[in-house]
Structures are given as structure tokens and as C-alpha cells.
Simulated assay, not measured.
Amino acid sequence: MKKRILIISQNFPPEIGSAANRMKGICQCLDEVADVTVWTTEPHYPYKQLYQQTDFLECAPEGITIKRIKTKSIRFEKNILRRFLLYVEVLFRFIKLILTESETYDVVFVTSPPLSVPFIGLLAKRKFKAEFVVDIRDLWPETLSAIKGIFPKILRALGYLIEKRIYHQADKLIVNSEGFISYIQGIVGDSKKIHFLPNGLTDSELVQVPVSRVSDKITIVYTGNMGIAQDIESLFHLAKNFQSAKNVQFLLIGYGKYYAEIQQEIKNLGLKNVIIKPPESRQKVWKRLRSADIAYIGLKEHAIFKTVVPGKLIDYMGASLPIIGVTSGYSKQIIEKAEAGLVFNKNEQQEINKELSKLINNQELRRYYGENGNNFARRHFNWQTNKKLLYKIIFEED
């Protein structure tokens, strides 16, 4: 008899972003061997109005029971208080769902951030007497250390208490970055195993893209969140240095706390070679990645950002794009291990310009890094392969 698995996630398709994409992959894998039910919100990330567009009405997995709660919050990405209020609203609406649920489940699988969702999972674990599995995609509340202000400090202190309880109460812990393991081990000790399950791509996304087209312009692309972690300033330095190169353009597609400020800064700096576009569906972004030439990734210099592996990095590698990066820590290790591109510190601007110029002018070099990245993604970021890891985590005893 198949196990019954309840998955609780604040983010789920048709939402965009690596959180929703990860949950889609996990659900599709588990649905092959179990009865899966998903509790989630109506699409709202990065903002609700986005999902009034037909481009974003695709891709909730078929064959899975999905229960969605409505939220009143409309725009929250710029304001941490509004985001907190959204988390509280989701918390109470999910609690109501738990209290009225008549079904039973063998496994409760929750994903964080936010920490309110694993807290709901604790209640579900007790009601359904189920195994409690916590998937950790970010070290929230530790990430709040990168935000100044009294309110973030208060949230951080409260978050540490909730985080500690959740991790200790979890029957199994999963991370999407090996960079998180030592931090979590410091909380739970050596007695609890921490499982690594990276984000993944589908077979169709992992089809290698040959670098053979002839184009009038070389496109350097950046996709995704433009928030506190991302180093867009270094991309601006590159754009300024290549303004006179008529065959080079920078394409930014995304959303986030600083999207409007970045849009205005492009105008203020007079960067005619930079195009910025609002969020697009994953399908459309993937087409843009496949037609681009080089991908940029940048993370600010803060200890917490050294532990993450951004979803965009995996997408870039899957799309066979050579990477130019301003980052450190775990994401740098992956790029260098895969030989998928070039990584620098923020203060190495002259060296970055020099190496980017080589990439722009050398198609074979772009092909070399792009193929390496794609091959690495096939081995390590492939749902068809990694679902075996998922099954082992869920269905076997630690």
C-alpha cells in the first residue's frame, strides 16, 4: 500500500522561483511511488497580480491533490513587516486547515523558509501521528543578519527559538546546499543525520545547447531575485566597461526588493547596453537562457551568502551557459569544480573585465565552459537521478 504524504509549502507552481520549482520536482518524484497531497497558498510570489497574466497559468503538477488557501497580502517583497504579516496570516489559515482535515497521512513534509510552515508541520505531525520531514532551503533566520534595523533583530531572535525546536523535533532533515550542514549540525548535534538533496532539472531542461549560432550581439544574462543577497553593482561595473562594445548587451530578468531601484540606476548611469525586464514564466526565461551566450551570478560578501547555491546557478549550468561570477563559498566551489566558468572577488574588477572580454571573443571557450556545466548538472542536478536520493530519505530508516 502506498504511503500517504502531505506536503506543506508556501511556494508552489504556477509560482516562479527556485522554491516553487524545487517543490514541483519533489512532488512529481514522490507522486510516482506515493499518494501526494499538497497544501499551499494561492500564487503570490513575488506578487499576486503577476498571476493574472496567461503566461503564468501553467505547470501545477497533474495527478496531485492540491489545497490552496487565500491570502489578503498583495505586495510584500519590499517590506519586512508586510512579509511577517503574510507569514502570520498563512500560519493561522493552515492551522484552520489542520483542525478541519479528516484525512490521515503517514508523512508530513514541510519546506522552509519561512519558519511558520515547519511550525505548522509540527502541529500536523501530532494530529496525524506522522513522520515529520523538514526541507531547509535557506538558513532563515540567520539570513536576517544581513538586514539592518530593530525589527529584523527581533524577528531573528524569535526565529532562532522556533528554528531550534523545529530541527530537534524533525524526524528527518534535508538541505539543498551542503553549505548548511555545519550550521544545522551545531544546533542538533551529531546524533541527527542531515540529508543533502540538491535542486534539480528535468531531462528536457538538461538537453545540451550547442554554441554554434552566429549572432550580431553577445548577450550576458542575469535572472531571478534582485534582493539583499545579490551583487548587481558588479554587473553594472561590467556594463560600464563594455559600453563601447556594440556587440555586447546585458539582459536582466527578475523581481525583488531592489528591482525598481536597479531599474532607476540603469537610467541614472546611462547604461544603454543593459535591458531590464519584469518577471517572466519559467518557460519563457528558459528560452531566453538557451538563446543567451554568457550568464552572470553575483552574491554579496556576507558569511551567510557563502553557504547557498542559488537556483539560477543550476539553471545556467543546465542551459549550457558559461558563467562569469562574483561570489565565494559554496557557489564558487561548484563553479570551479564543474569548470563551468570563472569566479572572482568583488575587488578584482580589472581581472573580471579581462576574462569576460576573452569569453565574449572566444566561442570555443564559451562552448568549453557551457558543456562542462551541463555535464555537471546532468550528474548532480538531475531529478531523474536524485529522486533515488529522495526515496531513500523518505522511505528508509536513518
Rank of each mutant, 00 (worst) to 15 (best):
residue 1 M to W: 00
residue 8 I to H: 12
residue 8 I to N: 09
residue 11 N to S: 11
residue 12 F to E: 03
residue 14 P to W: 06
residue 16 I to M: 05
residue 16 I to H: 05
residue 17 G to P: 12
residue 22 R to T: 03
residue 23 M to N: 13
residue 25 G to S: 14
residue 30 L to D: 08
residue 37 T to F: 00
residue 40 T to R: 03
residue 42 E to C: 03
residue 46 P to Y: 05
residue 48 K to A: 06
residue 49 Q to H: 11
residue 50 L to C: 09
residue 52 Q to P: 00
residue 54 T to D: 14
residue 57 L to S: 15
residue 59 C to I: 14
residue 61 P to W: 09
residue 65 T to Y: 07
residue 69 I to E: 10
residue 70 K to N: 10
residue 78 K to L: 02
residue 79 N to V: 10
residue 81 L to Y: 10
residue 83 R to E: 02
residue 86 L to Q: 11
residue 91 L to R: 07
residue 91 L to F: 15
residue 96 K to I: 13
residue 101 E to D: 15
residue 104 T to F: 04
residue 108 V to W: 13
residue 110 V to Y: 10
residue 114 P to R: 04
residue 117 V to Y: 00
residue 118 P to H: 02
residue 119 F to R: 03
residue 119 F to H: 03
residue 134 V to I: 06
residue 135 D to Q: 02
residue 137 R to S: 01
residue 139 L to V: 05
residue 147 I to W: 04
residue 153 K to M: 09
residue 159 G to T: 03
residue 162 I to A: 10
residue 163 E to C: 06
residue 170 A to L: 10
residue 170 A to Q: 02
residue 173 L to F: 09
residue 175 V to W: 00
residue 177 S to V: 10
residue 180 F to C: 01
residue 181 I to C: 02
residue 181 I to Q: 06
residue 185 Q to W: 00
residue 195 H to R: 04
residue 197 L to V: 04
residue 198 P to D: 07
residue 199 N to L: 07
residue 207 V to K: 11
residue 211 V to N: 12
residue 212 S to P: 00
residue 216 D to R: 13
residue 220 I to A: 08
residue 230 Q to D: 05
residue 231 D to G: 10
residue 231 D to K: 07
residue 235 L to I: 09
residue 236 F to S: 08
residue 242 F to I: 01
residue 247 N to G: 02
residue 247 N to M: 01
residue 250 F to S: 02
residue 255 Y to F: 15
residue 256 G to W: 08
residue 256 G to H: 08
residue 257 K to R: 15
residue 261 E to L: 09
residue 263 Q to F: 12
residue 264 Q to Y: 10
residue 264 Q to K: 15
residue 266 I to S: 04
residue 267 K to M: 08
residue 271 L to R: 08
residue 279 P to K: 03
residue 280 E to R: 14
residue 280 E to A: 11
residue 280 E to Q: 14
residue 281 S to H: 03
residue 281 S to E: 08
residue 283 Q to C: 09
residue 287 K to Y: 01
residue 289 L to S: 01
residue 294 I to K: 05
residue 297 I to W: 05
residue 306 K to L: 09
residue 309 V to E: 01
residue 309 V to D: 01
residue 310 P to W: 02
residue 311 G to C: 06
residue 315 D to A: 12
residue 317 M to P: 06
residue 318 G to V: 04
residue 328 S to Y: 12
residue 333 Q to D: 14
residue 334 I to Q: 06
residue 338 A to Q: 07
residue 340 A to I: 03
residue 349 Q to E: 14
residue 358 K to L: 14
residue 364 E to Q: 13
residue 366 R to E: 09
residue 372 N to K: 11
residue 377 A to D: 07
residue 378 R to Q: 15
residue 381 F to L: 09
residue 381 F to I: 06
residue 386 N to L: 12
residue 387 K to H: 11
residue 387 K to Y: 11
residue 388 K to N: 12
residue 388 K to G: 00
residue 389 L to D: 12
residue 396 E to Y: 13
